[in-house]
Design a protein around this nucleic acid. Structure first.
Lengths: 249, 249
DNA sequence: ACCTGAACACCGTTCAAGT
DNA sequence: ACCTGAACACCGTTCAAGT
């Protein structure tokens, strides 16, 4: 579609350099650029190689396969989100939990707007990514500091779900729910000292409901909880009357 | 993966029948079954043909191409949603808008849970589908009957967004926003008599903001509006204290 | 150690040919 | 009218070969 030189050193369009060597980092940077430009379906081994001025097979010396590239893309985005969320200025978390959460979520959104392909990828293959779990650990910490019970904080994470990270509906929809919950439980247990909030929440939720050691979330309940939050809030604004905002922001 | 006979009449596994002829309907039914069973990426022309006991090329006599099959899948799901939403028993809309909306949205959710592949497909290529627009027209009618201003009803649709139909974030994220909004505006105008609520909303929103004849939604504002609904609601439940629910439903 | 060309099993699709 | 086989331009990936 776009113009294409077809030869040369690809992204480094300067004069003939000694051909700087390929690396995992260069491959991932090119993949991010390609996905930002032309979407995720444009990220093929052959096109990526073309952008790098190299043959498709050369990529396999720096990444195991295409799946590793997709996982690398996830890593890049989650790093950007973590960085943006940490930079987001907000009150010291203990003071105003709403402002703290709001700032972090809006910062994450800015990253996702730069990488439109990211939500789908995160939904498809990031459920157990430690960095993503760490992000939710941070949100949970803010809720706890704001006075939330473990129970309510748990439901709050579900309700915020798609807004907190930009993907849809059920927060996680793995192929094998029970296995995925098992893996998540184990991962949190192994990182207990670094994930105090998630560990505490998990203990509470499983204590409240000893039957369901597997699958400790009731998706239908969580869906209705989030839906009712919205419906109640809308009813309140309706009853209050008046315009939603004076001018377009 | 699964067992596969490789020959015979496919889904009609009875004895040698006179080979009932292919049709668009049979192709779509087989495609829905295949997607339900093995996911959307399993829906290839060759595998679909295999399930139907036919060669891949035969499919092209009943559908224009693969895109037409995907659009057909969308049509099937939206029909099921419309049917389920209409069947959902609820108060006569004028009485209790929350119950009416809730019933329709939960009915839609049941359909989407049967077809896990549907949200992605809807998000990718159903933005301008008349049946989907008709579904939102119905939701908007409930809000209006419940006493919502056009303005607040508009924001309510955005806030419910992903929950109302099961897909994410921005409600619609077409490649070319302005062109898509243009098309949507035109489509609503052409169907004005069948879409009184959307027509009314559109007139109001464009009157309030005459600058933006194109792109009549401010995504950032809508995101924050929905986010704040959730944050306010969570704060209210937190302040109220007590468990969220006595037992697991 | 790093890169490559040919090849394989998959895609969607076209086209000329069969009944 | 309906179905098919061969072929084309794409995929991801393997493997033996080049430097």
């Amino acid at each position: 579609m776009g113009t294409r030189t077809g030869t040369g050193t690809g992204e480094t369009t300067g004069r003939q350099q000694p051909r700087l060597p390929l690396s995992r980092e260069r491959v991932l940077r090119a993949a991010v650029d390609l996905a930002d430009r032309d979407g995720l379906e444009a990220v093929t081994m052959r096109r990526l190689a073309q952008d790098l001025g190299v043959e498709a097979m050369s990529l396999y010396h720096h990444v195991a396969n295409k799946g590793a590239i997709l996982d690398g893309l996830i890593e890049v985005v989650l790093e950007e989100i973590a960085e943006a969320a940490d930079r987001a200025e907000a009150p010291p978390a203990g003071q105003d939990w709403q402002a703290a959460l709001r700032a972090r979520i809006l910062a994450a959104r800015q990253v996702l707007l730069r990488h439109r392909w990211a939500p789908r990828l995160l939904e498809e293959r990031a459920a157990l990514n430690p960095r993503l779990i760490g992000y939710f650990e941070g949100l949970l910490g803010i809720l706890r500091a704001g006075g939330f019970s473990w129970d309510l904080a748990h439901h709050a994470l579900h309700a915020l779900g798609s807004r907190a990270i930009g993907f849809a509906q059920e927060l996680f929809t793995p192929d094998d729910r029970d296995a995925a919950y098992d893996e998540a439980t184990e991962m949190i247990a192994q990182m207990a000292e670094r994930l105090p909030n998630l560990t505490g929440m998990l203990a509470e939720v499983m204590h409240n409901d000893p039957d369901s050691t597997l699958g400790w979330c009731d998706d239908q309940f969580e869906f209705e909880f989030g839906l009712d939050l919205l419906l109640d809030g809308l009813e309140r604004r309706r009853a209050a009357g008046g315009p939603v905002r004076p001018r377009r922001s």
